[in-house]
């Protein structure tokens, strides 16, 4: 009974997260400026990570958890590096 309820709900949540990721990609492609793309990338990896969590719930496996941790770590490092890159050439206190 619970499985019959959970499975379609997880599918709906996954569809919502995938649409969120698509919107983030749209903003990433559209820009207009570099900082817009970096913000979109930052949001993109967060929703990708959330999608992996729901994937774990769908398959009943905790393997995806490790992948989400790695995405969170790498995504943070990427954003920090990109933000530093945007600062280049300007006077930073």
């Amino acid at each position: 009974m619970s499985a019959a309820l959970l499975l379609p709900v997880i599918t709906i949540a996954q569809l919502m997260l995938v649409s969120a990721m698509a919107l983030h990609v749209f903003r990433m492609v559209r820009g207009p400026r570099a900082q817009d793309r970096v913000v979109a990338l930052d949001a993109f990896y967060v929703s990708g990570m959330l999608l992996l969590i729901t994937l774990g719930m769908r398959t009943g496996s905790t393997r995806y958890f490790e992948a989400s941790v790695i995405i969170a770590l790498l995504g943070f490092a990427t954003t920090v590096a990109l933000a530093k890159f945007l600062m280049r050439g300007e006077v930073v206190e």
């Binding site: 009974m1 619970s2 309820l5 959970l6 709900v9 997880i10 709906i12 949540a13 996954q14 919502m16 997260l17 649409s19 969120a20 990721m21 919107l23 983030h24 749209f26 903003r27 913000v39 979109a40 949001a43 967060v46 929703s47 959330l50 729901t54 719930m57």
Partner: peptide, 24 residues
Amino acid sequence: IAVLICGCLLAGAFFALAGAVGLV
């Protein structure tokens, strides 16, 4: 509890989607 899980999941995904709509 399954209903509670569903509610949290849908609400969470909705927040993420609303944020993405705002970003666009």
